[in-house]
Amino acid sequence: MNRKDSGMPFLLKFENVAWYESGEVRILDRRIFPEEKCFVQCTDYHQVIKAIQDMVTQSAGPYTAVGMGMALAAYQCKDELEKSQIAFLQEAAKELGNARPTTANRYRKITNRAANLGIKAIQAGQDASQAIFEDTIESMNRRYSIMQKVGDYLVDLIPNGAGVLTQCYGETIIGTMIRAAKRTNKDFRIFNAETRPFFQGARLTSSCFAEEGFETTLVTDNMTNFILERGDIDFYTSAADSISMDGYIANKIGTKQIAILSNRVGVPYFVTGIPDLDKVDHKDITIEYRDPSQVLNIMGHQITTPEVKAVYPAFDITPPELIGAIVTDRGVFSPYNLGHYLKHGEKEEFY
C-alpha cells in the first residue's frame, strides 16, 4: 500500500488518525492524548458521528474518520439486498457528511464519493467496504501530498531561528512543516497557545513539534499579548477550517484575537489551507455552537459552581485586513485576490 505518512509524528500516522478493519473503526482519542494512547472503537457508523461530534478527533481528523465510517457503513449493510445496501450507504453519506456544520461541505465531498464507489462495488458484486477503505487511504495520500506543497511554501517564508506562534492543532500542515524544515535544515522555535477548552495546542501541537526535536514552548491563551510585546514571536500561523473566496477564514475560536494582537505589534499572520470554492463570501460560513458545559469542565473536572453559565462558539472568523497572506498548494496569495488561485488551473481533488 502506497502511503504518504513517512516522517510524520505519531499523531499523523494513518492508523493513529482513524482506521477501518474487520467491521470496526478505531479512532485515537485526542481528548486524553498524550496522557493516554487509547482508541475509541466504533462498530456502527453512528458511533463514528458521535466521536466526531464529541471531538474524539478534530481538525483534519474527521476527513479520515468519515471515510472510514463509510467503509464501516458498507460492512454493516453487506448482508442486505442490493437496493437496501444502496439506500443505507446514501443515508450514511448524508449523516456522516453533516457530522459538524462548519466543515460539512468538506465532509460531504468525502462521504458522497465513498457512497458512489460503494454503490458501484455493490452492483459489481465486489467488497464495498474494501473499495471505500482504499479510497480513504488515497484521500489521505492526496491530502498529505497537497499539504506538503503548502508546508514547503510556509517554511520558505519563516526566517531561520524565528519564533513561530501557532493556534490550535493544524494537523496535516504541522506534519508537512516538520518535514519541510528537516529537509531544508531550517530551524525555528515553536510557541503554542494552549487552546481552551480541549487544549489541542498544548496536547497535540506541542506533542508533534517536541517529538520531532523542535524547541517547543507552551503559553496559556491569555499570555499571547505578553510574548508578542516581549518580542518572542516573529511569525504567527494557523490552519483554517474554512477559507471563503473573499479572503475571510474560520478557525478555532481565539484565532482572530491573536491576529489582532499580532497586527498591533507588526507580527505577520500567515494562514494555511485550500480555499473553499463553494463559499463565495464569509456569509457562507456557518459557526458551530457547542455544548456550553464543555467550557465549564477541564478534562472531565467541573471548574465552576453549578449556577455558572457558559457560551462556546467553536470558531471565529478573521477578516482579510488582519491576514498577511494565505499560503496554499499553488503559492502565497493576498486574501484580497484569492480569486487568482483559480488562474493556476482547476482545483485538485483534496478530500
Score class of each variant (00 low, 15 high):
81 L>I: 09
69 G>S: 07
20 Y>P: 02
89 L>K: 07
25 V>E: 05
84 S>C: 00
52 I>D: 02
20 Y>R: 04
73 A>G: 14
74 A>T: 13
31 R>V: 07
13 K>V: 08
81 L>A: 14
34 P>I: 00
15 E>M: 01
66 V>D: 03
71 A>K: 11
51 A>G: 11
23 G>D: 02
39 F>D: 10
84 S>H: 10
58 Q>E: 12
83 K>P: 05
35 E>N: 13
62 P>H: 09
52 I>F: 02
76 Q>I: 00
28 L>Y: 01
85 Q>W: 04
34 P>M: 00
87 A>C: 11
80 E>W: 12
75 Y>F: 14
84 S>Q: 13
86 I>D: 03
66 V>Y: 08
23 G>Q: 05
73 A>F: 05
43 T>V: 12
80 E>G: 05
39 F>I: 02
46 H>A: 12
22 S>K: 14
23 G>N: 06
83 K>A: 11
20 Y>A: 02
18 A>D: 13
53 Q>C: 06
52 I>G: 02
11 L>A: 02
72 L>E: 05
86 I>N: 06
48 V>K: 07
10 F>L: 13
55 M>W: 11
23 G>F: 02
88 F>S: 08
71 A>L: 11
64 T>G: 03
76 Q>G: 09
35 E>F: 13
89 L>T: 07
90 Q>I: 00
63 Y>G: 03
45 Y>Q: 10
72 L>Y: 04
10 F>A: 03
48 V>T: 07
31 R>Y: 08
49 I>P: 09
34 P>R: 01
84 S>G: 00
69 G>V: 11
80 E>C: 12
27 I>F: 01
26 R>K: 15
22 S>A: 13
37 K>E: 15
88 F>W: 15
34 P>Y: 03
32 I>W: 01
10 F>R: 06
41 Q>R: 15
52 I>R: 04
36 E>W: 01
21 E>I: 00
13 K>Q: 15
15 E>S: 07
28 L>S: 06
67 G>F: 09
41 Q>I: 10
77 C>R: 04
66 V>K: 07
44 D>G: 09
13 K>S: 08
80 E>R: 14
56 V>W: 01
53 Q>N: 09
60 A>G: 11
58 Q>V: 08
78 K>T: 05
58 Q>S: 14
15 E>D: 14
47 Q>G: 12
36 E>A: 13
73 A>T: 08
84 S>M: 00
46 H>V: 06
73 A>N: 09
91 E>I: 06
41 Q>D: 00
13 K>G: 04
66 V>S: 02
25 V>W: 03
29 D>K: 00
61 G>V: 05
48 V>M: 06
38 C>F: 00
90 Q>G: 12
82 E>W: 02
82 E>N: 09
40 V>S: 01
58 Q>H: 09
83 K>V: 12
49 I>D: 01
64 T>Y: 06
72 L>S: 07
59 S>F: 11
